[in-house]
Amino acid sequence: MNDGDLYRDDPDFADVECPDCGTTDVTVASLFGSTTSEVLFQCDRCRSCFNWVKWRHRLPPVPAENR
C-alpha cells in the first residue's frame, strides 16, 4: 500500500486539481512534499507531478469539545 492508496478517498484532497490539465484525478505521491507545507501529487491523466500547499486552517478535533 503506498501513499496514493492510503489517501485516495481523503476528503481533504477531493478538490485538488492538476495545474497542467485541470483534472481532479490526482494521487498523493507523498503526504510531505518538497517542503513541509506541501503535499506532492501526481496527475493520473497527464502524469505530471506538482506540489499543493496543505494549510487550509484545518485543525484536528478539539478534544475537550468531543469528549
Binding site: Y7, L31, W55, R58, L59, P60
Partner: peptide
C-alpha cells in the same frame, strides 16, 4: 494546523 497532517500520517 501542523498536527493535523502529522496525525494524518500516523492514521495512514
Amino acid at each position: 494546523e501542523e498536527a493535523y497532517f502529522h496525525l494524518k500520517y500516523a492514521a495512514g
